[in-house]
Design a binder for these strands. Structure first.
Lengths: 223, 223
DNA sequence: GAATATTTATATGCATACATATAATATCTA
DNA sequence: TAGATATTATATGTATGCATATAAATATTC
């Protein structure tokens, strides 16, 4: 991982994730090369990788842009993610180990604590922890990669989580039911509960989304 | 799509799909460049794209190789594919149009014809047609991309379909039940049937797979 | 003769230079 | 002045050259 191109991939991913680069922003090779003090060659390789992973798009002879997703595309991604989270539950129920179970329980406890404190930011983190624990418990590496990719692509469109503050206690209850179903080895029920849980979030997506279709100014470098 | 790099991507994908390039084969930049009469630059870009899409892997300072999947990795991919095929059925049942229904029916008819003729090759094609019709009926573009990617990655490990010849009539019956569930709007049942259908194939995977873990000679060019 | 060290070869990684297509600007004409 | 054409500018696409790390082959020593 000492390659310049790989470091560029990480940096650009991070800047897209954090919102420094927003959907629609243009990335000019020469500007990026100058900014990072390298030549265009590794920049181009990084861009090609990010295009393939869906974070950037290239318009012919016009260069690379941070990919803009329509509301439909975001919903499509969310539907797939919901189904895969359900699969993670079913597999977790079948293959549960003692260690995995403790990690899931720790995730649930973190959610409960954040909900009682009514701390939406802490809950967002705890929520990730809970879901990640189930995903790892599935024992399916491909599933982890796939869900991580979708998360990466949807994230630029997420606004702050405080908007769902009043749903925290309900979300904790749903998490608890999911965990119990997994512990009881009832994979089918766990999967159904998880899909319902995800879809409740999905119903709220139109409110949570921001800056979906509008045009963006072209900035390749950040000074 | 007039870029040399894009043409290389298509060509290499095709050669991996058709088995000209096999898992473990090395791809040397200079050899590929010479073979296609171009410089190393577009070759490198094509390689980067294929690495990101999972078809190639690069070992540090050793170059690119057609990705070798372990039996575990293939099973992981197959589990995800099965779940997504189930999702396609559920969505298709919810959103079924007249046109989509006819395409699914046409796929089933093609399967039935091939099965009655005991033509395993024709059945493989008809089977794809049936599944593709359901996937399109789902109305979820991301789902199509995802399943296509998985298909592309698993395909190099598939042997000829004649090995499953004695399962053709049973497979047709399963297809029929899946279609009926979709027509009745029972998405949950359709999804369950599809997952079971896929998993029956999965159970047979170890027999159908070939050349999974062994080493391969390094050939970058084909004369 | 075997194991280690040194040298040589080769392929990747990066930088630079050149070619070309698209877009913006300017100029010319009606 | 408005429109169309020509010109210039800029960014992408490709080719080539150089540096370096890994691997292979040879040589050296015990």
């Amino acid at each position: 991982m000492t390659r310049v191109a790989d470091q560029l991939i990480q940096t650009l991913k991070s800047e897209i994730h954090s919102g420094v680069l927003k959907p629609g922003d243009q990335l000019e090779e020469a500007a990026l090369a100058h900014r990072f003090g390298v030549s265009r060659t590794p920049v181009r390789e990084a861009v090609r990788s990010l295009v393939e992973s869906g974070l950037l798009e290239t318009r012919s002879r016009k260069g690379a842009f941070v990919r803009t997703l329509s509301a439909k595309e975001i919903m499509d991604l969310f539907e797939v993610a919901s189904e895969l989270e359900g699969l993670a539950c079913r597999l977790a129920a079948d293959r549960l180990t003692e260690d995995a179970m403790q990690q899931i329980r720790a995730g649930l406890d973190a959610c409960r604590t954040a909900a009682e404190a009514n701390d939406a930011h802490a809950y967002a983190s705890a929520n990730l922890q809970f879901h990640a624990a189930i995903q790892r418990a599935s024992g399916n590496e491909r599933l982890l990669e796939q869900l991580s990719d979708i998360e990466t692509r949807i994230n630029p469109y997420r606004s702050m989580p405080y908007k769902m503050r009043n749903r925290l206690p309900q979300s904790v209850l749903e998490h608890r039911d999911i965990m119990n179903a997994i512990l009881e080895g009832d994979g089918a029920r766990a999967a159904d509960l998880m899909r319902s849980h995800m879809m409740l979030q999905g119903k709220r997506l139109p409110m949570v989304l921001q800056n979906v279709p509008q045009e963006r100014a072209a900035i390749g470098r950040i000074d």
